[in-house]
Design a protein around this nucleic acid. Structure first.
Length: 530
RNA sequence: GUGGGAAUAGCUCAACUGGUAGAGCACCGGACUGUGGCUCCGACGGUUGCGGGUUCGAUUCCCGUUUCCCACCCCA
């Protein structure tokens, strides 16, 4: 049997009703804050995540779904990089250059012209040959020349051997296949990088402040466990724009946090906790990291195995350690708050001040750190008790330098991602009744050969009155129709048999009370809606 | 990637130190040719995840493997 692959799963009814409830509530709440939807591709070039999320993070180094799509060169920059790696010493890229061809010393040269690539190795040749080459290039011909020290290779799989007259001589030609560099693609492991990429690509900074959200699947190649799948769903929102539009303001941080508190309340999530910290600018964090490393060096041998490793690879994560024996040591370590400069400190204070004013409760957790490289200043998590080891249902923070790291304009931003799988799970655990599932108002039971036709007509009429109508088949015995209608939870069953069609009045039975009446065709919809 | 547990009918689970694989529910049919839920009767349903090994004999013991669950690593 073919099964859903490891770490993926089917979402089946009636659970899907719960997902729709979550998503429509999200859209409702976000709209009140003027967020608008963006949909980005579920795969992007690998480089985006490597640069955005951070080459050294676990996500990029070992948890991405990455493959090579080798159909064509992505663009000249990528091509040039690849060519240089494959043919060290290549000196020139671009159009055919007769000046280089006249040099005394042979120079390897690579050319890229649209999708055709050709390389000249070690050439030094006559004016006639140069002219011939110039013409070939001008006419965009695909040819291969071999003449004395000249060897011109043109990549073109269509091309067979071609004879070429150069200066009265027939030149032997040769095809050398050049594999164009494959493009590395990756299924998105998170949404922020793609959204910032779109922000840059479409010049969204010209619109001022952008409030964007995105709901969809993400992918991580990690071992599945409770609430963590290889294809998982995230609800992601970002506020991003030029600083002049207010994107850097602590008011944005507070607005996002207040919106999340509202959303969780609206969804009926009880007992959530907001944990808040500032991780500082990247410079401040670098200093902090160094200080941690120094402080850990003399004491790390007394700590658990994990911490000994983290002390070297990622000192920040030592703060996350849950080993009771390590806590006294961790308590004495330096804190990020000691490394914040005046601006970062003021920013963080302002966020807290607004949260208090609007009545959103929070806890400062100065051991809260983020795993992705791009986070700066405000970092936060909402946790929920009943989720086992995976108690965080959403997390996020500010990423003031991300746009620039991806080659875009300065665009401070703040965002978060909600793990939708886990959010739905916690709704199920808090005994959400699932009233979102609408059961049929009516089951139409055609009775006897040929009655499918009349039943279809009636069903169509009644559905236009916004009734949920399910439809049987005229080969069913009436008993079977009743059983199916009852199992589907239909409120009414309508019998469409020969007698009814003749009389233009149909037997309508209330499956809850058991009451049955004969209703003229024209009054059916009204009667059912009562 | 590491560790522990698990895998038997569509679902939930039995099967005594190793002796022919079973129940409840669901599904289908009948009792009941145009009236459901209740009741009764019947039928269907399996390479015991897969592959090796030990044994006269393996669902049971051993090894490998796959998947799931829990945790670790890590993390929105």
């Amino acid at each position: 049997m073919i099964k859903a692959v490891r770490g993926t799963r089917d979402l089946l009814p009636p659970e899907t009703a719960l997902w729709n409830f979550v998503e429509s509530t999200v859209r409702d709440v976000f709209r009140a804050y003027n967020f608008q939807e963006i949909r980005t591709p579920i795969f992007e070039s690998t480089e985006l995540f490597a640069r955005g999320v951070g080459e050294e993070t676990d996500i990029v180094s070992k948890e991405m779904y990455t493959w090579e799509d080798g159909t064509r060169a992505a663009d000249f920059a990528v091509y040039k990089k690849w060519m240089t790696a494959r043919f060290p010493g290549v000196k020139s890229f671009g159009e055919f250059d007769p000046d280089i061809a006249r040099r005394e010393t042979p120079v390897p040269i690579a050319h890229l012209r649209q999708e055709r690539a050709y390389i000249v190795f070690g050439y030094r040749t006559s004016e006639e040959v140069i002219e011939e080459l110039e013409r070939a290039v001008r006419l965009n011909e695909t040819k291969v020349l071999q003449f004395d020290e000249l060897r011109l290779v043109i990549a073109d799989p269509e091309m067979k051997d071609v004879g070429l007259q150069v200066g009265g001589m027939t030149v032997k030609t040769e095809i050398v296949s050049i594999d164009l560099p494959p493009q590395s693609l990756t299924l998105r492991p998170e949404a922020t990088a793609g959204i910032v990429r779109a922000y840059i690509e479409h010049n969204l900074e010209t619109r001022g402040l952008n409030k964007l959200y995105c709901i969809g699947p993400m992918f991580r190649r990690e071992r599945p466990q409770k609430g963590r799948y290889r294809q998982f769903y995230q609800i992601d929102a970002e506020i991003i724009g030029p600083a002049s539009a207010g994107s850097e303001s602590p008011a944005r941080d507070a607005e996002v946090l207040e919106m999340l508190a509202t959303l969780l309340d609206r969804l009926g999530i009880k007992n959530w906790t907001l944990e808040l910290n500032s991780v500082g600018s990247s410079a401040e964090r670098a200093k902090f990291n160094e200080a941690l490393r120094i402080a850990l060096d003399p004491v790390k041998d007394q700590m658990c195995g994990d911490c000994q490793r983290r002390a070297v690879t990622n000192p920040l994560r030592v703060l996350d350690c849950k080993h009771p024996e390590d806590q006294p040591i961790i308590e004495k370590l330096p804190r990020i708050s000691q490394f914040l400069d005046e601006d970062s400190r003021k920013h963080f204070d302002a966020v807290q001040q607004i949260l208090r004013a609007v009545g959103v409760e929070f806890q400062i957790n100065d051991r809260l750190v983020r795993g992705l490289d791009y986070y700066t200043r405000t970092a936060f998590e909402f946790t929920h008790g009943a989720l086992g080891a995976q108690n965080a249902i959403l997390g996020g923070g500010r990423y003031d330098g991300l746009s620039e790291a991806l080659g875009g304009p300065a665009a401070p931003g703040i965002g978060f991602a909600i793990g939708e799988d886990r959010l739905v799970m916690s709704l199920q655990e808090s005994a959400f009744a699932g009233g979102a599932l609408r059961q049929p108002d009516l089951y139409v039971a055609p009775l006897g050969a040929g009655m499918n036709v009349e039943a279809a007509r009636l069903a169509r009429e009644l559905r236009r009155h916004d009734l949920v109508v399910d439809l049987g088949d005229d080969t069913f015995r009436l008993k079977k129709s009743f059983e199916i209608a009852a199992k589907a939870g239909a409120k009414y069953i309508l019998i469409v048999g020969e007698n009814e069609v003749k009389a233009e009045a149909f037997a309508l039975k209330n499956l809850i009370t058991g009451e049955q009446i004969s209703v003229p065709r024209a009054e059916l919809a009204r009667k059912i809606q009562e």
